[in-house]
Every structure is written in C-alpha cells, then in structure tokens.
C-alpha cells in the first residue's frame, strides 16, 4: 500500500518536473525571439521545412474531408429539403472545427514528429552540446526559429485546409449532386460570420500551432539521447499533441461558442 502511494507520488513528481522543464524551455525559446530579427533566414528556412513541406498532405486531406462533408451533408440536408444550405454546413464545419483540428493533427503527425526526431538526433549526436561549447545557445539558435515557424505556419495551413475543403464540398455538392451554384455561395456568405466563425477558428489554429510545436520541441530536447529514446519521444509527440489538440478544442469551443 505504502509502496503504491510512493510510486504514485514519484509519478506525480516526475510529471510536475517535466511540466516545469517544459515551461522553462518555452520561456527560453521566447527569449530568443529578438535574435531572429537580424537573421530572418533562420526563420524562413524553418517555415519552409515545417510549413511549406506540409502543404501537400494538408491540401489533399482538406480536399477529401470537404468532399466527404459535401456528400454526407447533402444526404442529411436533402431529407429536410434543405440541401441549398450545404455551403453553410460545409464552411461552418471546416472553418470552426475541422480546419483547425484536423490540420493540427496532421501537422503534429508530419511536422511535429519530424521536429522531435531532428532535435532528438541533434542531441544524440552531440550537435547541441557542440553548439553550447562554441558559445552558441542551442535553444535560441535551434529551437526558437522552429517554434516561431510552427506558430506562423499552423494558421496558414489550417486556412488552406478549410479553403480546399470548401472547394471539395463545392465540387461534390454543386458539381455532382446538383445543388444550386448561387445558393451554395450566397448562403455561405450570408451565414458565415467573420468574427464568430473565421476569427475564432484562426485563434484555435494559432493555439494548436503553439502547443503542437512546443510539445514537439520539448520532447526532442528532453529525449534520452539513444535511438530508442528518440523513437519514444517521437511517439509521445504525436500522442500528446493529438490529445492536447482535442482537449483544447473542447475548451476553446466552450469558451467561444458556449453561450
């Protein structure tokens, strides 16, 4: 009984320690922001790696999710004779929820895991220690550009996901199922609110971008510097990021649309 309690306490302390280290790392990363201004190349290189290279998976996924939404939405709405509102349904679902959430999950799987593996391997091959011994702070030079690249890229990727999803929904609804072209866009224009829907969706994607990139960088930086340690850290990045995105989505949705 006492041993179980001791183990429980040990686990709790371990979690708190990791949380503390994670927050200190985030503080160190943010302190490195001024270093980016004289060297914008560091940031653009990472935006390419984190953001541009994620465009393909985000685009294809967005298109297919939108097509499925168009198909499912049409069958349900047509039962009530409301198929002309398909554009609203597709756009609202994407802009409010699916765009930020699914794009973040894909981002965690592609860019997040890559970031963790990269940082973890840099640690395992002593590149981070090497930077320290060259009097270069690895947090500022390596982690800060990657963090802000994720921060900038995620909302843009979520917007791309939503835009292509709407095109996918349009293609299925208007192109294949015969929904009126004008009604599709007009209903969407009338019902989708810039502040309520688009702005709140953008806030979600910014929050998800911060959290996913932070988790990925922390897991890489905190990884045990062995092949097994890096592998486990990469897995943890995807699991923790996915859970954090889904949990935060509920909290943010409740705060934004709860009343």
């Amino acid at each position: 009984m006492l041993n179980s309690l001791a183990r429980l306490g040990q686990v709790g302390i371990g979690i708190l320690e990791r949380l503390g280290r994670g927050h200190l790392l985030l503080l160190g990363i943010c302190r490195g922001l001024p270093d980016l201004f004289p060297r914008p190349g560091l940031l653009t290189k990472q935006i390419y790696s984190v953001g541009v290279l994620s465009i393909l998976i985000i685009s294809v996924s967005g298109l297919f999710v939108g097509m499925v939404l168009g198909l499912q939405g049409y069958y349900i709405l047509s039962q009530f004779g409301a198929e002309q509102t398909l554009g609203v349904m597709v756009a609202a679902s994407l802009v409010r929820e699916l765009g930020p959430v699914v794009a973040a999950l894909l981002f965690a799987g592609r860019a997040g895991s890559a970031l963790t593996a990269e940082i973890g391997l840099m640690k395992a091959t002593e590149q981070l220690s090497g930077l320290e011994m060259m009097a270069v702070d690895p947090i500022r030079r390596v982690l800060t550009p990657r963090f802000f690249a994720g921060f900038i890229s995620m909302p843009l990727l979520a917007a791309l996901f939503s835009a292509l999803g709407i095109i996918g929904g349009y293609f299925v609804g208007v192109g294949l199922l015969g929904v009126d072209d004008g009604a599709f866009w007009a209903q969407m224009q009338a019902k989708i609110d810039l502040h309520e829907d688009v702005f709140n969706g953008a806030i979600k994607s910014v929050v998800f971008g911060i959290v996913c990139t932070w988790i990925a960088l922390f897991q890489g930086f905190d990884a045990i510097p062995t092949s097994e340690g890096v592998s486990r850290a990469t897995t943890r990045t995807v699991v923790h990021s996915s859970l954090a995105v889904l949990g935060l989505d509920f909290i943010l949705t409740a705060l934004m649309f709860g009343d």
Partner: peptide, 12 residues
C-alpha cells in the same frame, strides 16, 4: 567558452 575548443567523440 569562446576561448575553449572541444572536439567531441562523434565530431558533432
């Protein structure tokens, strides 16, 4: 550290 060099085992 700018006045200390270090050669790591892996080269780093």
């Amino acid at each position: 550290r700018m006045r200390m060099g270090m050669l790591f085992q892996s080269g780093a």
